[in-house]
């Protein structure tokens, strides 16, 4: 037995294993191909475009080198949009997490309308953004919106507020609608995790003398930590590049007060017809997002380890 085994060189892969390896490559090839077409090519194209000055309708233009990037670094547009994007992301994400965790905790209790409430809470997430925005635009409307009407009847304001046409109301408005639209994702993820926390841990904590608040901080929250990290990272990435909700609600206005980076890229490419400059902005945006991505990959790796 040992004599036969030592005759085979150590580096040689057994034939069967080689065949499996070939089959493996064959099986993942279609995915790699599609991935290259829809992700790698556009990415490289964007980087390529960003060193040209291109007029969008004709896609004609000349090489400008780093000019577009110099404009990005020295001009106000990119930095203003980055600031707006960060305010929007942090604001809406904070609200989503707070409301999401709170509601998940509530729905985890044994309340009689639990199953109905669990389905209803998903409603904003299922609703098409266009429909949701239309409804909210009506609610926000300064002439006949229900929001102003309600606030006036409660005596909080004397005059109707211009919700989407002035600052900081417009930013508050988009943050609120964003939170309303996306918090169900947080509810679902947190609720799923809550259900896996062993009841015994709470019982042990009760016997150890922990009250409800101590049980939340000593049992629930540590158990939610990993899922919350992933949710925060994912939602941060998604909120950071959110387009349709903001575009439909304010279009980036008033002026550029709610113009996030996604809206800036769009405006540059199709409003000002500067595809090259837009590509440079989008590369800049991608670099910022790379930070989130690295954090996310690190987090998932940590979990698998």
């Amino acid at each position: 037995m040992t004599a036969i085994a030592t005759n085979i060189p150590k580096s040689a892969t057994p034939p069967l294993e080689r065949a499996y390896a070939r089959l493996g490559v064959l099986l993942i090839a279609p995915t790699i191909l599609v991935f290259s077409l829809v992700i790698v090519y556009p990415l490289l194209a964007a980087i390529y475009l960003s060193v040209f000055s291109i007029y969008t309708p004709t896609l004609q233009g000349g090489f400008v080198g780093a000019d577009n990037y110099i404009e990005l670094l020295t001009g106000k547009a990119f930095w203003n949009s980055l600031k707006v994007t960060l305010i929007w992301t942090v604001g809406t994400l904070t609200l989503q997490i707070v409301a999401g965790v709170g509601l998940a905790l509530l729905l985890h209790q044994n309340i009689w309308f639990r199953s109905l409430a669990r389905s209803l809470v998903l409603f904003p997430y299922f609703l098409s953004t266009v429909v949701a925005v239309l409804v909210w635009k009506w609610l926000f409307n300064d002439l006949y919106g229900a929001l102003n009407q309600g606030l006036m009847q409660l005596g909080i304001i004397d005059m109707p507020l211009d919700w989407l046409g002035s600052m900081p109301n417009a930013m508050i408005g988009v943050i609120l609608v964003g939170a309303w639209k996306f918090f169900p994702f947080v509810v679902i993820a947190v609720l799923a995790r809550l259900q896996t926390i062993p009841e015994n841990l709470y019982e042990a904590a009760r016997i150890d003398g922990a009250g409800p608040i101590a049980r939340f901080f000593d049992v629930t929250l540590p158990q939610l930590r990993s899922v919350l990290t992933v949710i925060i990272l994912l939602r941060a990435i998604w909120d950071f590049k959110e387009f349709d909700l903001l575009y439909l609600l304010t279009g980036g206005g008033p002026v550029t007060s709610t113009q996030t980076l996604s809206l800036l890229v769009y405006q540059e490419a199709f409003g000002l017809n500067q595809m090259g400059q837009a590509a440079a902005y989008s590369v800049g945006m991608m670099l910022v997002m790379l930070v989130f991505m690295v954090l996310y990959i690190r987090q998932t790796k940590e979990k698998n380890a």
Binding site: P198, N200, L201, E203, A204, A205, R206, I207, D208, G209, A210, D218, V219, P222, Q223, R225
Partner: peptide
């Protein structure tokens, strides 16, 4: 009386140790 006030301690089948 609440469990924490009964002056008892319990060992669970699953041990119920706080994982973090």
């Amino acid at each position: 009386l609440a469990p924490g006030k009964r002056d008892i301690a319990m060992v669970f089948q699953s041990y119920a140790l706080y994982p973090h």
